[in-house]
Simulated assay, not measured.
Amino acid sequence: MERSWDSPRFKSAELTREIKNIQKKGYTHIRLPVALSYHLQSNPRFLSELESLIRFTEKERLQIILCNFDSELNRNNWQSHSSVIKSNWLSVLKKISFDTKYLAIELVNEPLVNPDTWENILMELLPEIREVKPDIPIIIGATNYNSLYELSRMRPLTGFGNIIYTFHFYEPFIFTHQGTPWTGNQNSTRGIPYPFEEGKIPSLNPKAKGTSGEINLRDYYQTGNMLAIEDKISQISEWAKQNQVSIWCTEYGVSKNADPASRKRYLEDVSATLHKYDIPGFIWEWEGNFGIKSLIHHSKSTKGNK
């Protein structure tokens, strides 16, 4: 529901059916990305449909994160767009007027403003949200695309209660985003396996020559393994412990451009590492460029052939 360029229609019945399919796989926590501005503007029934969906997830005791995806927030428009973000969330939360035990909200996906500006925006948003929903869990990430490194430099907010901090994990980027056109020539090299294995690394795509992708591929022998993954995640875990805050990883995943065996191994390694540090993790995504729906089916069919 975040791809506003595909003109999606938010229909609770269709979403409920798909969520039931996900439940059958054993998942108990779901992050639902929603282009709030788009749906609020294009669909007069959006709030009613959303209310129906949340009533279903509450009945099923299914933890759901509602994440705001089309904020269009940047350093040039933050004053006007922060007001839009606030208005959208207040509209949503006033509609969901009943008590919720399994709903959390993620204010903005991957904010792209400087850290001081982001703190100013949060200090404007949080008091009004707390007036409407005093206890709802609020998920907050750092700037630079919910960067783990920016989060480690962030000062936790005080006085608002039930705040969960989040980061997104796509390391090593040269592997997880290989062949993705929206990340540019740096990731044009495809066929990169995980974990790193001598003799199986492809040649650099000529388009990546002179980009950070050239350096990242050169260093992949150091970054393409579970030890490197744990090194990064352990650091943010230590930050959370020192600051006595809750932390979730609301996105980790790998493009379908990687081979299925490498994708599965990577997701297992990140999942195991997050579990080791007691950090709840959400795979990006069920369907789409990073979708695991087909990966699950592939794994089952492979097992059936053995």
Results as ranks from 00 to 15, higher is better:
Gly159Lys: 11
Gly161Val: 02
Asn162Ala: 08
Phe167His: 12
Tyr170Phe: 13
Pro172Phe: 00
Pro172Tyr: 04
Phe173Cys: 05
Thr176Ser: 07
Thr176Gly: 05
Gln178Cys: 10
Gly179Asn: 11
Pro181Met: 07
Thr183Ser: 13
Gly184Glu: 02
Asn185Glu: 15
Asn187Ala: 15
Asn187Cys: 13
Thr189Met: 02
Arg190Leu: 10
Pro195Ile: 13
Lys200Ser: 14
Ser203Asn: 13
Pro206Leu: 07
Pro206Ser: 09
Lys209Ala: 13
Glu214Phe: 00
Asn216Met: 15
Leu217Pro: 11
Asp219Pro: 05
Tyr220Asp: 08
Tyr220Lys: 07
Thr223Val: 01
Asn225Gln: 03
Ala228Thr: 04
Ala228Lys: 04
Asp231Ala: 12
Ile233Thr: 08
Ser234Met: 07
Ser234Ile: 06
Ser234Trp: 03
Ser234Arg: 14
Gln235Ser: 14
Gln235Asp: 14
Ser237Asp: 14
Glu238Asp: 15
Ala240Leu: 03
Ala240Asp: 04
Ala240Ser: 13
Lys241Gly: 10
Gln242Cys: 00
Asn243Ala: 11
Gln244His: 14
Val245Phe: 07
Ile247Glu: 05
Cys249Asn: 06
Cys249Pro: 01
Thr250Ala: 07
Thr250Glu: 06
Tyr252Asp: 00
Tyr252Cys: 02
Gly253Thr: 11
Gly253Val: 12
Gly253His: 09
Ser255Leu: 02
Lys256Ser: 07
Asp259Val: 07
Asp259Thr: 08
Pro260Thr: 06
Arg263Gln: 14
Arg265Gly: 00
Arg265His: 11
Arg265Ser: 11
Val270Pro: 00
Thr273Trp: 03
Tyr277Ser: 00
Tyr277Glu: 03
Asp278Val: 09
Asp278Pro: 02
Ile279Thr: 06
Pro280Trp: 04
Pro280Ile: 03
Phe282Cys: 06
Ile283Asn: 05
Ile283Met: 07
Trp286Val: 08
Trp286Tyr: 15
Glu287Met: 07
Gly288Asp: 07
Asn289Ser: 15
Ile292Arg: 01
Lys293Trp: 05
Ser294Arg: 13
Ser294Met: 08
His297Glu: 14
His298Asp: 04
His298Ile: 01
His298Gln: 02
